[in-house]
C-alpha cells in the first residue's frame, strides 16, 4: 500500500518536474526557428565576412589570418574617403528631406478633401514597387535624351540632348536621391500617418483652444507625439540608403561612388584574392551604420527622458 502511494507521489513529482522543464524550454523552443535564421544565416554571414576581412579565405586561395592588411589598404586608398563622404551624402539628404516631406504629407492627409480615399490608395504605390523599377522610371524621365529632355526640346528650350542638364550618372547623385525619395516618402508617411490616426486630435484641439498657434501646436504637441514613428521610420530608411547597392551602382557616377558599389567593384575583380578587400569594405559599412544607429537611439532615449516619458 504504502509503496504504491509512494510511487504515485514520485510519478507526480516527476510529471511536475517534466512540466517545469517543458515550461522552461517553452520560450527558447518557440524562439529557436526564427533565431536560427538570425544566428546561423545572418550572424554566420557577418562572421564569415569578418574573418575574410582579416585574411581567412582558403576557398580563394588566401589565408594570412589574422591581418589588418585589407583594412590598411582600404584606408590608404584616397578613393575611400571620397566614397565614404558620398555614401553619407546620398543616404542622409533623402532621409532628412524625405522625413520633412512625409510629416507634411501625413498632416495634410489628415484633413478632409475630395478624393481622399483615392489619394490614400495611390500614394502608397511606390512603396509597393521594387527599387529597380524606380530606377527604370527615373532613367526614362531624366536622361539627357529622356522624355523630359524631349518635352523641353519640343517647347524649344533646348536644341540637342547635351543642352539638358545631366542628372544621372554624376557625383551629385540627383537620380539616386530621387529614387530614394520616391520610394521612401510613402513609407515614412504611412508610419507617421498611422501614428497620427492612433492619436486622434484631442491634444491638438486642446492646445488650439488654449491659444497655441499652429506652429506652437505642431512643435510642442504633434511632433513629440509622432516622434516614435519618425524614429522608427528613419531607423529603417537611413541604414537602407547607406547600404544600398543597385541604385547608386546604376544611377551614380562610374567613379567615385558609394562604399557598397566600391565593395562590389573590388569583389568583381578577376583576381579572387582581391575579394578580401571587398570584405573589409562591407564590414566597415556595417560597423559605421551600426555605430550611427546606436548613437541615434541613445540620443532619442535622452530626448524621451528629457521630455519625461521614462
Amino acid at each position: 500500500m504504502t509503496s504504491t502511494t509512494d510511487t504515485l507521489g514520485l510519478t507526480q513529482k516527476r510529471k511536475l518536474r517534466q512540466r517545469s522543464i517543458l515550461k522552461r524550454l517553452y520560450v527558447p523552443m518557440m524562439l529557436l526557428p526564427a533565431s536560427l535564421v538570425f544566428l546561423v544565416l545572418f550572424m554566420g554571414a557577418l562572421i564569415m565576412a569578418f574573418l575574410q576581412s582579416l585574411g581567412y579565405a582558403p576557398i580563394y586561395g588566401v589565408n594570412d589570418f589574422p591581418t589588418f592588411r585589407y583594412y590598411r589598404e582600404m584606408l590608404e586608398d584616397p578613393a575611400f574617403r571620397v566614397s565614404i563622404g558620398l555614401t553619407f551624402y546620398y543616404a542622409l539628404v533623402p532621409t532628412i528631406l524625405g522625413t520633412i516631406l512625409s510629416i507634411y504629407l501625413a498632416l495634410s492627409m489628415r484633413k478632409r478633401f475630395r478624393g481622399r480615399t483615392l489619394f490614400q490608395y495611390i500614394y502608397k504605390l511606390p512603396l509597393m514597387i521594387p527599387y529597380l523599377v524606380g530606377v527604370a522610371v527615373v532613367i526614362e524621365l531624366f536622361t539627357q535624351g529622356g522624355i523630359i529632355a524631349r518635352l523641353f526640346h519640343a517647347a524649344g528650350f533646348i536644341e540637342v540632348p547635351q543642352d539638358f542638364p545631366r542628372l544621372l550618372k554624376t557625383e551629385a547623385g540627383w537620380g539616386i536621391m530621387t529614387v530614394y525619395l520616391w520610394k521612401q516618402i510613402p513609407f515614412t508617411t504611412l508610419i507617421v500617418y498611422s501614428v497620427l490616426m492612433g492619436l486622434g486630435k484631442e491634444y491638438e484641439e486642446a492646445a488650439g483652444t488654449l491659444g497655441a498657434n499652429k506652429r506652437q501646436t505642431f512643435i510642442h504637441v504633434t511632433l513629440p507625439q509622432i516622434m516614435p514613428g519618425i524614429v522608427a521610420a528613419t531607423l529603417i530608411v537611413f541604414p537602407f540608403n547607406f547600404g544600398s547597392f543597385e541604385v547608386p551602382y546604376i544611377l551614380g557616377a562610374d567613379f567615385p561612388n558609394t562604399l557598397p558599389v566600391q565593395a562590389w567593384r573590388v569583389f568583381d575583380d578577376a583576381d579572387y584574392t582581391r575579394r578580401l578587400g571587398a570584405m573589409a569594405i562591407v564590414m566597415t559599412i556595417s560597423f559605421i551604420s551600426g555605430v550611427l544607429l546606436l548613437i541615434y537611439l541613445m540620443l532619442y532615449r535622452r530626448y524621451e527622458r528629457i521630455r519625461g516619458r521614462q
Binding site: T143, Q144, G145, G146, V160, P161, Q162
Partner: peptide
C-alpha cells in the same frame, strides 16, 4: 546603342 537612339 540607346545613346545613339536617344540622340546623345
Amino acid at each position: 546603342e540607346t545613346l545613339v537612339a536617344s540622340g546623345e
